[in-house]
């Protein structure tokens, strides 16, 4: 038996791997602790008017009276790609709760977005901010950044970087906004 086989077969080595697995599991549970940050002063959400993939125009004011999740993203942004599947699952949970979910793509054309959606299906409203004028009016410094707007049109929560959006705690934070209206 080779030295390598002896090392890998030894109880000590197995214990070492068990330790690594446990460390990874506890690391994941820490990583799973996530939340949304309350926005100080609840400022009014900056208005926008943007086209969707079919050329139809949507305004933020169209959704007054509902909680709105607004996510700024781009196809080339790894954390944006990472969170889109969980946003889609969250949308499945929220769409009957009078909640609106909007993904605003920054700086790309509809061909790029359309081809991306072949791999990352997005079932909620996708708008295009091709000249980045809208994101320039929002307090965003990096992608992805997501805001939750309350039914009165105020910025209530912010998340910088991706989240697991189907986390029941996050969904409950959004649902509660509709209960307060």
């Amino acid at each position: 038996m080779s030295i390598r086989s002896l090392i890998f077969a030894s109880p000590l080595f197995r214990l070492f791997w068990l330790g690594l697995v446990l460390a990874a599991v506890s690391g994941n549970s820490l990583a799973a602790k996530q939340s949304l940050t309350p926005v100080a002063g609840k400022p009014p959400a900056p208005a926008f008017s943007l086209k969707d993939m079919d050329g139809e125009t949507h305004r933020l004011s169209d959704f007054r009276g509902k909680a709105v999740i607004v996510n700024f993203w781009a196809t080339w942004c790894p954390p944006c790609r990472a969170e889109l599947p969980s946003m889609n699952r969250a949308w499945t949970n929220l769409k009957n709760d009078d909640v609106v979910m909007i993904a605003i793509n920054v700086g790309e054309d509809e061909d790029t977005i359309f081809s991306f959606m072949g791999d990352y299906p997005i079932d909620f409203l996708t708008l295009m901010d091709q000249d980045s004028r809208v994101i320039g009016n929002w307090p965003v410094k990096g992608l992805p950044t997501t805001f939750v707007v309350d039914p009165q049109g105020q910025l209530i929560y912010r998340a910088i970087g991706s989240r697991e959006w189907d986390d029941p705690n996050l969904l409950e934070m959004v649902r509660q906004l509709n209960q307060k209206k």
Binding site: K33, Q34, S35, T37, C77, P78, P79, K141, G142, R158, A159, I160, G161, R163
Partner: peptide, 10 residues
């Protein structure tokens, strides 16, 4: 960056 998950890539 606020607690509970804020981060950026770039």
């Amino acid at each position: 960056f606020e607690p509970d998950g804020d981060f950026n890539w770039g």
